[in-house]
């Protein structure tokens, strides 16, 4: 067991940072890493690139990545009545939006996304698709002018939900990918066997935009992406459609929508987990995509692997992960990084 300080994860999850507006998350991460005596710099896109010396020089130059941004919303216009029109940033199922409470802009103005009272809603409307253009954020403004005193169009909007880490699981927003950032921080905290680059990337949710630049700068030979991925275990969903399950260890990808992962590294992950009695599962489904898609091709080819903390309800106001999975993902990430760094690159 490695002691995990859940207060750090809590701080990371409760901080707002939609794609393109990751600075507060980055500050929180810098607060942590400045205690570990490591070098870092922030690149032009906002990626946080951290280098930590290990006891040995690596034979393969390794970069470990997690993204700082989360899905959220952006204010697109203000109505005459003072309601805020908005769009989603990153892939959000519009159907989760009614009834949510949100925080807007730097001053974290609270707002809510309402819905017409059921008493006034025809049955046909209840069973029809929700158009985002029919949804608004209500901040209680009197009118447009009043709203403009507090809000600018373009302001970021994040879900306002609580963090609960009781009963062996964590219920929180933004676990995708603050869980990954948290694992990187826990690796950085330790004495390393080999020199390693850690990058906290921006703009993953709007098309893997930060990771490519960071990878170009670092120029790694190999990379491990630490992510959160879909666990889909609702009763009625058959086993083969579950992608992965919480509590069964990190999910390792062989292929997704943007990456064909390094086959040898995939097998290395499986065998290391087996040897060290760490729970592991393949990500069963060619779904989604992550920073690996950009890193993989940023400067020639980078051998890339992704391991993910299984997370239910990604891209909503409250995902669920299992604490043991965090432990297992961290253990596996450490073993993999040491093994890859110690091998002659080929």
């Amino acid at each position: 067991m490695i002691e995990l300080d859940m207060n750090i994860l809590k701080k990371l999850c409760l901080t707002g940072g939609i794609s393109g507006d990751e600075s507060e998350v980055r500050e929180k991460i810098i607060e942590e890493i400045s205690q570990y005596g490591t070098e870092y710099h922030i690149d032009a896109m906002g990626n946080l690139i951290v280098f930590k010396k290990g006891k040995n020089r690596p034979l393969t130059r390794l970069m470990i990545a997690a993204h700082m941004d989360e899905v959220g919303m952006i204010v697109t216009y203000i109505t005459e009545n003072g309601y805020l029109g908005f769009d989603t940033v990153g892939g959000i199922d519009n159907r989760i939006l009614p009834g949510q409470s949100v925080l807007i802009g730097k001053n974290k103005i609270p707002g809510v996304i309402g819905l017409k009272p059921i008493h006034l809603t025809p049955k046909s409307e209840i069973s029809s698709e929700l158009d985002i253009e029919s949804l608004f954020i209500d901040i209680g403004a009197k009118d447009k002018e009043d709203a403009q005193k507090h809000i600018n169009v373009g302001d970021s909007v994040v879900f306002d939900s609580k963090f609960d880490d009781t009963n062996g699981r964590i219920v929180a927003k933004a676990l995708d990918d603050r869980a990954g950032c948290f694992i990187l921080l826990n690796m950085l905290k330790r004495e390393l066997e080999y020199d390693t680059y850690f990058v906290f990337t921006v703009q993953e949710e709007i098309g893997l935009r930060g990771a490519g630049a960071a990878s170009y700068t670092v120029d790694p030979q190999s990379a491990i992406v630490i992510e959160s991925t879909t666990a889909n275990e609702i009763p009625g969903i058959e086993k083969h459609n579950r992608i992965c399950e919480i509590g069964k260890g990190p999910a390792v990808s062989f292929m997704d929508k943007v990456t064909l992962y390094d086959k040898n590294y995939y097998e290395l992950a499986m065998s290391l987990a087996k040897e060290n009695k760490i729970n592991i599962q393949p990500k069963k489904g060619v779904t989604g995509g992550n920073d690996a898609g950009a890193i993989n091709v940023s400067k020639g080819v980078t051998r890339t692997l992704a391991i993910s903390v299984p997370c239910r309800y990604l891209h909503t106001s409250a995902g669920i992960i299992n604490k043991n999975d965090l432990q297992d993902t961290l253990k596996l990430a450490i073993l993999l990084s040491e093994k890859i760094s110690s091998q002659e690159f080929c």
């Binding site: 009834g99 809603t121 609960d164 309800y313 909503t316 106001s317 409250a318």
Partner: peptide, 23 residues
Amino acid sequence: GLDPRILYGSTVIVHGEKDFNGV
């Protein structure tokens, strides 16, 4: 009376033997 569209994705508290947070 509740519209199912308000429920999906909501965080809730189940008031069992004690309170449990759920989604």
